[in-house]
Amino acid sequence: MTRDRSFLRDNGLTLVFGAGFLLSLAGQAIAGHADFNNQLIAEDLQPLSFGGYLLSSDFAVDVTENWQSEYLQFFLYIFGTVWLLQRGSPESKQLHKAGPESDAEQKTGKYAKPDSPRWASAGGSRQVWYSRSLGTLMCTLFLLSWLAQSVTGVAAYNEQHLRELQAPISWFEYLGAADFWARTLQNWQSELLAVGSMAIFSVYLRQRGSPESKPVGSSHEATGVEG
């Protein structure tokens, strides 16, 4: 029992957000199925089963267009905060640390500690890749989910066109279509707004006990300090 409690405590952030993700995805599927069938009924078409909706391009494009924007947010934030600074924000590095920093600061190469990841001291291409592995993964997931959005998006777009007795378009044509960019940019603008707002609001506002906030008594000028 103690070991189970320790596991839950040590992994609470991942477990709670993971469970929240699954519940939200299930809720999206249920609500989306109902809304999709309402549209079909309004067009005098046969409603789709719940299982059929889960395998449909309409459900897939709604999911992937959100995923790509979230991974874009993290990719830009991870790489952007290497060089970009915000005075007074805990979301920024300290003002004198812009850039990739030295091996001593990053504990790589000969400065690696006994408990450092093995590739931190490996040198060569392995260390170069590992030093950028988090941002690289976020970029890869963004590109893959954006590709998935484009593929499922054109399928959903053409399905709607066929129901309206209009000619379908190719994937390349869809990449330049207003529908694709409307879906994409409506998510990008919200993610960029959220990150920018968090960076500046955290200069002046506090949340006691959160590492995303400075300590309550810290100066507004304190930069790169977490509570």
Rank of each mutant, 00 (worst) to 15 (best):
138 M>C: 12
39 Q>R: 13
168 P>D: 11
195 V>Y: 01
18 G>A: 06
140 T>H: 11
119 W>S: 01
48 L>N: 05
88 G>C: 11
57 S>D: 09
138 M>T: 13
83 W>Q: 01
61 V>T: 02
111 Y>L: 04
25 L>W: 11
70 E>Y: 14
132 R>V: 02
45 L>Y: 00
199 A>V: 11
75 F>V: 01
160 Q>R: 15
95 L>K: 07
32 G>Q: 08
52 G>C: 05
31 A>R: 14
78 I>Y: 15
212 E>W: 15
107 K>C: 04
176 G>Y: 10
218 S>R: 09
87 R>I: 10
28 Q>F: 08
176 G>W: 12
158 N>C: 03
62 D>A: 09
37 N>Y: 01
13 L>M: 04
115 D>F: 08
74 F>N: 07
7 F>C: 05
141 L>T: 02
132 R>L: 08
10 D>N: 14
24 S>I: 05
175 L>I: 09
119 W>I: 00
210 S>C: 05
69 S>F: 04
25 L>G: 05
225 V>C: 03
113 K>Y: 01
50 F>M: 11
90 P>T: 03
147 L>A: 13
106 Q>A: 13
2 T>E: 14
81 T>Y: 06
131 S>Q: 14
163 R>H: 11
133 S>L: 05
52 G>P: 08
185 L>D: 09
92 S>T: 00
128 V>H: 12
106 Q>E: 14
61 V>N: 00
170 S>E: 03
78 I>E: 15
48 L>T: 13
168 P>E: 13
95 L>M: 15
104 A>C: 06
69 S>E: 07
206 R>V: 00
191 E>P: 01
125 S>V: 15
26 A>G: 03
29 A>F: 09
7 F>T: 06
123 G>K: 07
213 S>T: 00
146 W>H: 08
197 S>G: 04
27 G>K: 09
143 L>H: 02
103 D>L: 10
137 L>Y: 10
127 Q>K: 01
121 S>K: 12
151 V>G: 05
130 Y>R: 00
189 Q>H: 05
220 H>I: 05
160 Q>V: 08
151 V>E: 09
209 G>K: 04
130 Y>G: 00
80 G>E: 10
10 D>P: 00
191 E>Q: 15
192 L>M: 11
14 T>P: 06
90 P>G: 06
152 T>S: 15
207 Q>L: 13
139 C>L: 15
26 A>I: 03
131 S>W: 08
106 Q>L: 14
214 K>W: 01
173 E>N: 14
1 M>F: 09
43 E>W: 06
31 A>V: 15
6 S>Q: 15
71 Y>T: 06
134 L>K: 13
222 A>L: 01
33 H>C: 01
75 F>C: 05
112 A>Y: 08
112 A>W: 05
14 T>W: 10
191 E>S: 12
169 I>C: 05
150 S>H: 03
86 Q>M: 13
205 L>Y: 13
224 G>V: 02
63 V>A: 08
111 Y>F: 15
107 K>R: 14
172 F>H: 12
210 S>R: 05
60 A>T: 00
1 M>D: 13
123 G>M: 07
55 L>Y: 02
191 E>Y: 11
26 A>N: 02
65 E>W: 14
139 C>M: 12
157 Y>P: 06
31 A>C: 11
129 W>C: 10
127 Q>D: 00
34 A>W: 08
51 G>R: 14
144 L>N: 06
220 H>A: 11
60 A>C: 00
64 T>G: 03
